[in-house]
Design a protein around this nucleic acid. Structure first.
Lengths: 365, 365
DNA sequence: TTGTACGCGTTATCAC
DNA sequence: GTGATAACGCGTACAA
């Protein structure tokens, strides 16, 4: 045994000269192997262990060490089941492999799909994802923003962020912020990945015009930047064609099935002769669907329902739903790529990444 | 200025006697405040800072320090926007606030609901959740299991775990393992939270008997312990009543909509006079639904479809679906509670936690 | 009541 | 090629 480990070695549990830890701890939770254990077993220094494992991980061809040494180290590491601690590594390198993803509601299909694709994309870059669900509550979002800081995450990715005081404080931080689907609020700088919602709204309006859906209503949520843009584009295009949507036919609903249902009930009790309904997103459309049924309206024949997002479940359970297909699965890679460009300080970092959308008409008239 | 910071202070960027970091780093990424910065500003030692912040966080009444000192420290911390690093803390205390949640597919409603509820429950215990999506791939699961180790998570929670070599290696570790919905494989020890699937299967069979659904088929996935149990209970109960399900009417389908559809198509092309279909879970049932439609069968009138889980979307988009309601939202708190008991070494730690289920008949015959 | 000093596990810089 | 050692940010035993 060489003596380059002596000092540390004396402090290790087996040779402790200090008061030993309570025995039940020793018995139930054996200490995890560290670089020292590997070094000891391979009879080399920790520096060598780190070097070998490092060039190994980076896929570099040859490091500055002999073939034999490398083998000894790798064998020892394997034998001990050694896995370098991210904690130690992060502390030393001041970099984390953790990315926080803050969403309003994972139970929403669209969120879930983006989460899945982001998670996979990050993984291919060697990053892990910490998922935080704000439950559509701005206060919870703020609590998260401050808590997440403590984890020193590589980046914060926010899906449909609320414009809150907490957000404005958090972005001051050096951590990069990526906003998804909903643009960063005015005055807040951060990157954006999403679709051109206004253009998509215009697109839907275009279709309405070809179908003569002039008796229509809008069920929206103006507090979401994304939805507001959709509606603006929609109304603008209709206006250009001389079609106006009276304010009594613009009704607000939170972006949930339940509220879509509730608000649609109100709307339908007032105006009966609607030919088409434009909803803030698919969730809302699902609720609207039931309201229409209960109002004795045959969906499609009497009234057409338009959603937004195109959740994958539509294909199977909502064949009556016309909607704008937003490529949820493309979001993950797009976000991850942008993120890597930012953290690696690439030369040209786009402020915005716009993804394509398309109108999905399931039952043409 | 007292001199108790001198040594560290000299090493801080502003007073560096070593080669300074490249200026662009300094400019773009100012160093985050640490205990030292707070100590310096408050004119106390780091020990005092830590103490004050600590008793504050623990909600203890009075710590061992003067009122004035506490105020000085808190002011300084607030002023600097100081947030203790989880990295440093975890490294020191050998405890993490991170729990890994490994799921087969977050895009599955049930997974998403459990994820949401778990995430909320963990949060109330001051824990964060790292979400890992295996994408129904056992190999990916194994890769995750070894990667997650590096994060030294407090616990691993696995929803519907695959029995893989990687799993058997991973559970050797000192990290507690919690299995959800699918029991730990034989020989693997870990805790379990879920429902009594066998009893639930029997329950469905019971209903089939009262409805005289003797011409029935089973679309299942025997590689999932949970589904297998459901089917066993179902078949057993039928057998007790003298009803047998011929093997030609037991068909396998992976637990996805697509495969449910595909396999149901095959099944229906063979046997036309089925009165009821028992599916492995709701996802499968959705696929089966379309297959029935395409086979010219009116769901409910001609053939009844039974699922399992009762995804929240059913209420709105699948009113034809009879299913076993599994309380997804109750899973999170149950898991979190069990987890806390384990990590805090409570006296009585249940090996299994069984949650209640109930049959949800949406369209009684 | 407060301050000093050490070590958690890692990487990186230096010297040999 | 290899080894000793200094940080990273934190909590805490011990000293004062």
């Amino acid at each position: 045994m060489s003596n380059h480990l002596s000092k540390r070695f004396l402090n290790s549990p087996a040779f402790s000269v200090r008061e030993p830890a309570p025995s039940y701890v020793q018995m139930s939770v054996p200490r995890r192997p560290t670089v020292f254990d590997v070094a000891q077993l391979a009879n080399v220094s920790i520096a060598t262990v780190s070097r070998v494992l490092h060039t190994q991980a980076r896929g570099e061809q040859r490091g500055r060490f002999s073939k034999e040494t490398a083998e000894k180290v790798l064998d020892a590491a394997r034998m001990l089941g050694y896995q370098p601690s991210e904690l130690g590594r992060s502390l030393r390198t001041a970099k984390t492999r953790l990315v926080a993803f803050l969403v309003p509601d994972v139970a929403n299909d669209f969120c879930a799909d983006v989460a899945v694709s982001l998670q996979a994309a990050l993984r291919s870059h060697g990053l892990a994802m910490m998922l935080c669900n704000a439950g559509e509550d701005p206060d919870v979002q703020d609590e998260y923003l401050s808590e997440i800081k403590a984890f020193r995450v590589t980046a914060m990715v926010m899906l449909a962020a609320f414009d809150t005081p907490g957000l404005r404080v958090a972005v001051q931080d050096s951590t990069p912020f990526l906003f998804v689907n909903r643009r960063p609020p005015k005055g807040v700088n951060g990157h954006f990945v999403g679709i051109d919602n206004r253009a998509a709204g215009r697109h839907v309006a275009e279709y309405f015009l070809t179908q003569k859906y002039t008796d229509c209503a809008i069920i929206h949520w103006p507090h979401s930047d994304a939805v507001r843009e959709r509606v603006v584009g929609f109304i603008d295009r209709l206006a250009e064609a001389g079609v106006a949507v009276p304010s009594g036919r613009r009704i607000e609903a939170r972006l949930t099935i339940e509220d879509g249902y509730r608000q649609a009930k109100k709307l339908l009790s007032r105006s009966k002769k609607l030919r088409a309904l434009f909803c803030g997103n698919d969730q809302v459309a699902y609720g609207v669907y039931r309201a229409c049924g209960e109002a004795g309206l045959r969906v499609h024949d009497d009234v057409a329902i338009f959603g937004f997002d195109d959740n994958h479940i539509n294909e199977w359970l909502a064949p009556w739903l016309n909607t704008v297909h937003v490529p949820a699965t493309a979001f993950g890679p797009a976000i991850a790529d942008l993120l890597v460009k930012i953290t690696e300080h690439h030369a040209h970092i786009p402020r915005e990444v716009l993804l394509p959308f398309e109108l999905n008409i399931r039952r043409p008239a």
